[in-house]
């Protein structure tokens, strides 16, 4: 009994020492996990996850403070990738999270715009060009579709327009198969 206790405590001590040593020896500077998570997130910077941007959300996930199912623009594939990276189970979108929408870009109605610059300040990726009292316009290729400019507009001149399908963005459809069709 005593020997068993001693052996076990010795093993525990030895392993602890190894762990402690390797923690010092193989210390990683910075937090590469945050970057890996950030690489999966779609970078819309939309804040739908309740964090002020993708990086803060990535930091929160890495710290274990946020679930991986809070990013609607990333879609289910995004959740799956995060689950893979973190060795977690796939979880569907939470009920408090907005449903994923088709990718859209913001469009400013140039007749209504009063040039207040509020949307320019709201845009997280500087994709709106314009100056005070000048009409603004959105650089469509740089717009992430985050919708953050929609709310600040005092004259409601910004609308979200789903991206039209082109030959470049066209995708083969998921085959409808009989086994997925449920009998009535």
């Amino acid at each position: 009994m005593l020997i068993a206790l001693l052996v076990m405590s010795f093993i525990a001590l030895a392993l602890g020492a190894v762990l402690g040593f390797s923690a010092l020896k193989f210390r990683v500077e910075g937090n590469p996990l945050v970057d890996k998570i950030d690489a999966i997130l779609p970078q819309t910077q939309c804040g739908q996850c309740s964090f002020p941007g993708c990086k803060p959300y990535a930091t929160a996930i890495a710290a274990g403070e946020a679930d991986i199912n809070r990013c609607p623009p990333g879609g289910e594939e995004g959740i799956r990738k995060l689950a893979d990276l973190l060795g977690k189970e796939f979880i569907p979108f939470g009920e408090d999270t907005a449903a994923p929408k088709p990718k859209s870009v913001a469009v400013i109605d140039e007749n209504t715009c009063i040039g207040c610059t509020l949307c320019i300040q709201a845009c997280p990726v500087d994709a709106i060009a314009g100056a005070a009292k000048q009409m603004h316009t959105i650089i469509a290729v740089e717009c992430t579709g985050c919708e953050l400019c929609v709310a600040p507009c005092p004259v409601d001149c910004i609308t979200m327009v789903p991206l039209p399908q082109t030959l470049q963005t066209w995708k083969w459809q998921y085959p409808e198969d009989a086994q997925e069709k449920k009998a009535p």
């Binding site: 997130l41 990726v125 500087d126 995708k171």
Partner: peptide
């Protein structure tokens, strides 16, 4: 085609990250 689309998205995301 999903993978190709994801690669395009990835490029767009990298651009957005840089700009952000």
């Amino acid at each position: 085609s999903e993978i190709w689309a994801n690669e395009r998205d990835k490029e767009a995301a990298n651009l957005a990250r840089e700009r952000h």
